[in-house]
Design a protein around this nucleic acid. Sequence first.
DNA 1: GTTAATTATTTGTACATACAACTATTTGGT
DNA 2: ACCAAATAGTTGTATGTACAAATAATTAAC
Lengths: 169, 169
Amino acid sequence: MLTQRIFIKNLKIFAHTNNVIYICTIMSDEKNLYCKCLYYSANALARIITRIAEEEFAAVNLAPSYAFMVMTINKRPGLLAGELSDIMMLTPSTVTRLLEKLESQQLVKRHMEGRVTMIYPTPKSVEINQEIQAAWLKLYKRYTDILGEEFAHQMTEDIFISAVKLDTK
Amino acid sequence: MLTQRIFIKNLKIFAHTNNVIYICTIMSDEKNLYCKCLYYSANALARIITRIAEEEFAAVNLAPSYAFMVMTINKRPGLLAGELSDIMMLTPSTVTRLLEKLESQQLVKRHMEGRVTMIYPTPKSVEINQEIQAAWLKLYKRYTDILGEEFAHQMTEDIFISAVKLDTK
DNA sequence: GTTAATTATTTGTACATACAACTATTTGGT
DNA sequence: ACCAAATAGTTGTATGTACAAATAATTAAC
């Protein structure tokens, strides 16, 4: 198993079982193939930033998506499930599933009226919303410290715009 | 439910149930909050590009991760599971799960020796590898047509480098 | 005004991925 | 040479997300 030991500029230094040291540019062989693929790179980044977000939002005992949902609902009480789906760029079925769980934790209330479902925060949700915001800020600090704020800003914006452009369905 | 109808520059035009038309900048209200968050944006992009990749790799009856795994194994027969994990930026357990499924489809062979597992392509896998490459190229064409090749290149590289930098575990 | 089409949400089911715990093997310390 | 530590991989289990089908409500068509 190759385990990463240290990272210097564009170099990754691995130590192998038998003490052979490998020094690779991050553009090494196979990765060089894949790093030019948006599917590969975007998913890799998403997995890694999700792990970091999970660590930060663990302080409020919520997975990141749930935390974002709570924030969104607190910002606009009474919004519809479909609007949540649009804002969070998640499918309606995923939104339903997240809401179910939040409701079971008394963090939101669903109010069905006709065929629409309006969503309201609960007192408990209002309370922890502050902590969620704090965790969110810590998350932001954490990755901008590593990537540089300027760079992170620009890239995040590029990623967002690309997501919107590619979301043609 | 808001459904996207058309996209012009930074404008998104929605048609609502009651035929009211909403025109929003893509930096509207809530999204404006979230589009600056790397967790949110990276995950949104990953989900969308994954859906597109699934469409393209459907031609070879494989989900994208499996297709990438087949390509990697064909490029370096005999590589270890741990190396696959490193190259693909997936955890060892995920690699095991993917390999199990590929093996059941006769697309790879695992050879355990001591505590390491070496992985080899099968004739069937060599065969479809060409089709996988073709699908991969179609995927690339598809998103670069929308985003612009120059822009997509730069962003993909930025994303890859960020993933490597943030992957400190 | 009744029937067909559209729309909003939910449910059944499937899947990719990960963590934690476990097994088996190899390495290192004394 | 033996025992502790580290390592490679697998398995049990959980979770986030999505698709397709189902349900229920609203709108449109004639």
